[in-house]
Design a protein around this nucleic acid. Sequence first.
DNA 1: CACTAATGGATAGCATTACTATCCCTCTCC
DNA 2: GGAGAGGGATAGTAATGCTATCCATTAGTG
Lengths: 209, 209
Amino acid sequence: MRLQELSEVTDVSIPSIKYYLREGLLPPGAPRARNQADYGEAHVRRLRLIRALIEVADLSLASVRLVIGVVEDETATTHEAFATAQDALSGRSDERDGTEEWLSAQTEVQRWLAGLAWQVRPGTPAEGELVDALVVLRRFEWATDASIFDHLIAHTLADAADEVATVDTAAGRSAQVEHVVIGTVAFERAGAALRRLALEHHSALRFPD
Amino acid sequence: MRLQELSEVTDVSIPSIKYYLREGLLPPGAPRARNQADYGEAHVRRLRLIRALIEVADLSLASVRLVIGVVEDETATTHEAFATAQDALSGRSDERDGTEEWLSAQTEVQRWLAGLAWQVRPGTPAEGELVDALVVLRRFEWATDASIFDHLIAHTLADAADEVATVDTAAGRSAQVEHVVIGTVAFERAGAALRRLALEHHSALRFPD
DNA sequence: CACTAATGGATAGCATTACTATCCCTCTCC
DNA sequence: GGAGAGGGATAGTAATGCTATCCATTAGTG
């Protein structure tokens, strides 16, 4: 497959593909000659992964690079790879951490998480996102402690179990990581969208006017 | 309250506040004199809303402007205001719409949504986000139809009902919209974070190594 | 009443991100 | 043997979200 065909199949412009090649997000094609390269299914898949991360997960190219790094790393254990990928998918910057207000919320979130006894690393970006959410809920007098999140636990845990169960143990590490990444990204977006539709539905029921 | 104090209380720099004033996101303070203005609680709240939308919901200032427009509009009905706010919170661009692949997924999503019989407007950004998610799931052979989202319905609907129930009917329109906006933003972020932590937990259980 | 410092208003500059465009020369393939 | 695709390099660009500087005014401070 030549560059132009790759561009047509994936609906990504040639300059963009060249840019991704320059940035090392897309591996170079097999050099058929000094200036003629051959691209295959792997390149199509990689481009689709990049576009999904940019368009659906709203990641920066820097975060996309991290995710791809995990996908390409065949040395880490399966669990390590999944955990690192989840971190990269967050796209969170830690600029807000460290204020008194933030640290107070962090202490509360950590206390609450400890009560769940989940096997998660402390200090992950996901923990930081929970803290961000609690800070906002506190500022607007929605909540004071993290028990406001209690009702999310049951179904979230069940969903996650189902999603982890779909991982094909016979597949290679890269395919497994890619599978989990796509699942995370797509269901996160779908869940948020469905949540907003459900809010609209219930608002229609409660406020018919 | 003077500009500097407002800046200190909200932890937003003076140039940023001036910028928000220029952009009309923050209403001007009460002019105590030709070049001295007085800011109050409403300005603190508004700045917190802006920062929450930027930092937690990752909205652009253009989308923040839309949300604020809804918050300030006292003429719309409660339900109209909520629905419009949900649209603004999406931050989705419709650049991807219209390809054959996308339209096919859209047809499927609309068919599936019709089966739910929810009272939602067709063509909302949230519907577009569901379509985006389905397109990705199809590309990576995760799913072919929207029934992959079935398991999300029950708890999403229950969560939304709870959230709508917390709206204080005695409060003013602006306070109600602000309440719903903050709830949507914070729980969306918290739900996604908790989902990633639950994935890590279940990955640890299934792949202990 | 003098003086430091903040204010509103205006305008310009800047850093980052994600491309996009242009050259230029090589090499392929019909 | 000539059109055209390819690689490599470099430069340009559009949008976003501030940040900096200047200015004349004026408010508190002693």
